[in-house]
Write a protein that binds this DNA or RNA. Structure first.
Lengths: 109, 109
DNA sequence: TCAACTGTTCGACGACCATCGTACAGAACT
DNA sequence: AGTTCTGTACGATGGTCGTCGAACAGTTGA
């Protein structure tokens, strides 16, 4: 059943760029699991991946938690495709709001 | 009182650039108090400031804790001058290790 | 010498965080 | 129908974090 976005849709809302706080973004990126998620996304820029395709070494529930932290911070965007929840980097919003931040973090060895 | 690992100097050792981890640096910068410290330091680049000159709205012990987190992460360097412990941004080391990171964080509005 | 000043250390507290297993819900495919 | 797959929600747990006050140590200056 095709459902409209406001009434019954799951809450996948990301913050607007103006509402994104740099402390929150930095906190989201300061966890090794979440950083690996972001780096995986950056490696295939523009594409979206299912949660299970990251090869994370944590449980399903923990992974789900990390994706939510990244989404709430405004780092990623998610949308449902069938039984998959696809995750995508919010590259444009991030670059506009915090120029250079994402690149420097991703490039960090 | 202050532990001495060499002869008489207090233990104010910072990590070598090669030992600095980006997750740790991001975690250090993700706290509002510590971020304000870094921004204050960046505003007067090259100068060092005493801990009390930051106008932090936390207790002495809490402030001391935050300076230590920044120092352990490699973000700042400290040295004693009389009864003041001076803090300075490790701009060169940071820029060499994580190019663009500090600038993007400081510039974030 | 003594007092004031600067900052650290200690112990404690509450809050938050990363983690997990279980249960659950929707979608796809027999 | 049922089964499998993907991911979320819930509740719990152990650890870390930010915070404070009190006590302490070193320096400076009266």
């Amino acid at each position: 059943m095709a459902r409209t976005d406001t009434a019954t849709a799951p809450n996948l809302a990301e913050p607007r760029p103006a509402d994104m706080r740099v402390e929150t973004v930095l906190g989201a990126l300061s966890d090794p699991v979440r950083l690996s998620i972001v780096r995986t996304l950056a490696a295939t820029e523009g594409e979206s991946r299912s949660c299970g395709s990251f090869g994370l070494s944590v449980s399903k529930s923990t992974a789900s938690h990390h994706f939510r932290v990244l989404r709430d911070a405004g780092v990623v965007r998610q949308h449902d495709e069938g039984r998959h929840r696809m995750t995508e980097l919010r590259r444009a919003e991030l670059d506009a709001r915090f120029p250079g931040l994402l690149d420097s973090v991703i490039a960090a060895v």
